[in-house]
Design a protein around this nucleic acid. Sequence first.
DNA 1: GACCAATGTGAACGGTCGTTCAGGGGCGGC
DNA 2: GCCGCCCCTGAACGACCGTTCACATTGGTC
Lengths: 218, 218
Amino acid sequence: MTKRKPAKSGGSTSMASEREPLPSIEAIRAAAFQQFAERGYPVVTVRDIMKACGLTQGALYNHFKSKDELLHDIITSTQAELERQCLQAVSEAGADPSAQLAAFVRTYVMRHCRLRVEALVANREIGWLDQERVSDIRRSRRAIRDILVGILTSGIEKGVFDPPKIDGKRDLKAMAMALLDQCTHISMWYIPGRQLDEAQMATLYAEMALRSVGATEK
Amino acid sequence: MTKRKPAKSGGSTSMASEREPLPSIEAIRAAAFQQFAERGYPVVTVRDIMKACGLTQGALYNHFKSKDELLHDIITSTQAELERQCLQAVSEAGADPSAQLAAFVRTYVMRHCRLRVEALVANREIGWLDQERVSDIRRSRRAIRDILVGILTSGIEKGVFDPPKIDGKRDLKAMAMALLDQCTHISMWYIPGRQLDEAQMATLYAEMALRSVGATEK
DNA sequence: GACCAATGTGAACGGTCGTTCAGGGGCGGC
DNA sequence: GCCGCCCCTGAACGACCGTTCACATTGGTC
């Protein structure tokens, strides 16, 4: 993610995904993800993205109204998919808060290990969107945090969680943010094939989360 | 941190820090921190920074060789101070790994609550520096991670920590990264005056860290 | 008062950016 | 064969960027 020129791919035409010609709009999305993740939205030019998928600048505007809209499009779709997966994981985990928390964390971590590029862009480049465009993404983030807060609350009510009390009170939002921060930023340093694989990472993080909230041993 | 124009300060001359005229170079540093944190390095122009401290573009180059060097300067100094504080906190905590871990986390969290702006810039804007400039900052980050790994290792040896085992093995680097991610990104959402104050945040995070690593109750 | 070094000004330079647009090729439907 | 539509090209436009530079202005030293 330096300011310098994009690393030119060895080949002659486009970059990756040579197997099938991929409709232009999908090729643009994929190239944009890659470029934004590697070098950051503001320094990636429209020319860079389009060259990376074998087209020229002007063609972008047959598919997106602007560079801003392109970023918004790819972040929004990623974020929506994340929210959906989290909800599904929790709902499939039954009524036990410990199982729900573990399922949530496992899903969240696996996704952030597997789709590092998408996660990186969705989390890091949000700030470049203007205020109107960013509001529904923030809503989705709050929703995800509140899933977690809900699990914690029900766990406390049922007596299976015992999170730290600070001066006699708890701050479940702060705890939820702490757990999310931990899981989210895996995408900034995790490299597949070193040490733990995705499933093991998920297990580790789920275990840490359960310990943090003071889940009673089974 | 939108792409749009910088929020103009209400006043007529400069922005904040009107109390003392502050030497130019310090005023530039302060303005750069603020601007970079609010809007991000690539979209903040030299003209923005200098206007924010009541000077014009050209004057920057009497103090820094380039915009890049300015960023490098402020990140490096912040990072060095962070490393120093962490080392000091641990060394003052005595030989007990639990006390060391708690002291480390408390110091780290307090700093990231108090100096949100500096932490934000140091953590988020690193990627804009070219490869040569960034290497010593990465070294410092690794050093901080390794302080944590060292505490974990000695805690396990002394039998006071029992971190999760995954398939019979432990990954202390991953655990250290998880703890650091959690603490680092407080600076992205913490707002003073809401809910917990800095000291309470430090207590909460220290408690979570101790639980995560399976520290034995005293 | 003459000199000097440090510091600030603002026009100017060369470059790059996002976006627009006139033009062209390919292709299904008639 | 011709039309209309979609998609693409690449030159062009206006704006803005980091940096430089000739030129003030200041304040201290002899």
